[in-house]
């Protein structure tokens, strides 16, 4: 069951919005958005600068980072 923490700050909002649009279970606490799923958490790159796209998992992951390319992110 992969889990992804994202710091709830403006620069990571595109990731939060994209994951919320997928109806992934979301919990907010302490300045973090936590997404958990029974399936891989997958994300096509929203409009983001490199620094934020390649750095958004900094808040923490649970699972295996299967893909994090210029265009896609997949946590299994």
């Amino acid at each position: 069951m992969p889990k992804l923490y994202v710091l709830d700050v403006p620069e990571f909002q595109p990731v939060i919005d994209a994951l919320k649009s997928q109806k992934i279970a979301t919990e907010y606490k302490g300045g973090y958005a936590c997404f958990r799923s029974d399936h891989p958490i997958e994300l096509a790159r929203p409009k983001m600068h490199d620094a934020t796209w390649f750095g958004f998992p900094v808040a923490g992951i649970v699972g295996t980072l299967a893909e994090h390319t210029d265009t896609r992110f997949r946590l299994i």
């Binding site: 923490y5 606490k29 302490g30 808040a59 923490g60 992951i61 980072l65």
Partner: peptide, 22 residues
């Protein structure tokens, strides 16, 4: 780095448990 992100998730979870419920 993925190892560190996994470890960081544990630190975040410990940190959040210390916060009052929202």
């Amino acid at each position: 780095l993925a190892d560190m992100w996994r470890y960081k998730a544990g630190l975040v979870e410990d940190h959040l448990q210390l916060l009052p419920s929202e």
